[in-house]
């Protein structure tokens, strides 16, 4: 009967041994384990943005200072862009199918029949994807610094603020996609379209700072256009524009409220 339990005392493991941690912590630990069992998500969120940065660094022209970028190099711009890519992937691509599947398969429902609210499961998932974003951001920063000598952000506090707001916006957008999608399949489809749009606005194909004026004005209204501008400003040493931070905060608030209002538990 005690097979496989190495540490439990053979006499009486008892209920207290089975209950070492609180419910919320237990959910978080279990979900963290599950998160680590998804190599696909881990690669695209955690490794791919850094890989992209390294590949872009192979283009010699990207490592030359450019006058129309205020003397900065293209590779410098791609550090915040890669970080945004990680956030968009985590929030919009990776998280929605997981949450919709939890609802679709009755996992949330089964949990509703216990003393723990199924919202604990959602909170754990949001927290884990948020942590993955920030971990990936750190990795991109370190890779940029060591491989291509990209300077660390000149305005670290403003940079961190913009970073946290961007992550929150990505996760709230992802949560809204879950709330609106009936099935995991639909969530994946909607997420893929949103993913492409957001990659464009974040400047993955063409940095926002290099976009023509009119296009840039439009893109700045979107969460990741604003995020891109805010991060770039903080990276080059000034406090990010309040207008950009405001746009980000507004998107976060609106999608956050929408998601929590519209989310169906079953």
């Amino acid at each position: 009967m005690q097979t496989g339990t190495t540490t439990a005392p053979a006499t009486a493991p008892g209920p207290s041994a089975a209950r070492r941690r609180g419910p919320a912590a237990a959910v978080l630990i279990a979900e963290a384990r599950l998160f680590l069992r998804e190599p696909g998500s881990l690669f695209w969120v955690f490794a791919f943005p850094s890989v992209l940065l390294v590949i872009l660094g192979f283009v010699p022209a990207f490592k030359e200072a450019q006058d129309d970028l205020g003397g900065r190099r293209v590779i410098d711009l791609y550090v915040p862009i890669s970080i945004l890519l990680a956030m968009i992937t985590a929030g919009v691509q990776a998280m929605p199918p997981v949450l919709t599947a939890y609802r679709e398969r009755g996992i949330l429902r089964r949990m509703s029949a216990t003393p723990v609210r199924p919202s604990a499961l959602l909170a754990a998932q949001i927290l884990l994807h948020g942590a993955a974003c920030l971990g990936s951001a750190l990795l991109v920063t370190v890779v940029g610094r060591t491989a291509y000598g990209v300077p660390l952000p000149g305005q670290p506090a403003g940079y961190l603020l913009a970073l946290l707001l961007s992550a929150a916006a990505a996760l709230c957008l992802g949560a809204t996609i879950c709330a609106l999608s009936r099935t995991a399949k639909a969530a994946t489809a909607v997420g893929s379209v949103a993913y492409l749009v957001m990659m464009f606005t974040a400047g993955v194909w063409l940095p926002v700072q290099a976009m023509p004026d009119i296009l840039r004005r439009v893109v700045e209204i979107t969460p990741f256009g604003a995020a891109s501008q805010a991060l770039e400003q903080a990276a080059s040493g000034s406090w990010p524009g309040w207008i950009h931070l405001g746009v980000l905060a507004l998107w976060t608030a609106v999608t956050g409220v929408a998601a929590s209002r519209m989310f169906r538990w079953q």
Binding site: M1, T5, A17, P23, A26
Partner: peptide, 11 residues
Amino acid sequence: SAFYPAPADWR
């Protein structure tokens, strides 16, 4: 088990 205040031993 962690969801309940006084769970049975699952083993």
